[in-house]
Amino acid sequence: MPNRGIYPKLINLFSLLLTLLFVYTATSKLIHLDTFQTRLERMPYISSYATLISWIVPFLELVIAGLLWFQKYRKVALYGSLVLLGVFTIYILVVLNYSDSIPCSCGGIISTLGWRAHILFNTTFMIMALLGIIWYHNDNIIQTHQNTT
């Protein structure tokens, strides 16, 4: 078996951390679905879609967390993680121009983070997803090359 280096292990580690994050926040949102919906209703720009978003966000988080563990769909899941976290972060940044109070309707103890810490937290996970995509891509190129030689 060829030595493929540390990158596949790191992709597994990042997938594990992203799974922990998404399952934790999705479960917290679903436990307090009413509170989550109420918070969304008070948010600017998205209040009219509160009911829809309150179901779609945890659903997407759980689907992405699941897909991260299927080799066939891992790349899609990493892209999904990056996009989902990116959307959350951009929304926070946009709303912070409108209000300096955190517009957080995130799940669990993450909702107790200040907005700076929250953006840093999201950025860290976005970097993990991005590195996962890059390394996954590189790993596939190496594997294809090894299979053809």
Partner: peptide, 14 residues
């Protein structure tokens, strides 16, 4: 993750 979500349930008061 599910265990942690339930364990930290009390800390999520808005």
């Amino acid at each position: 993750a599910v265990g942690l979500a339930f364990a930290t349930e009390d800390n999520t008061i808005a």
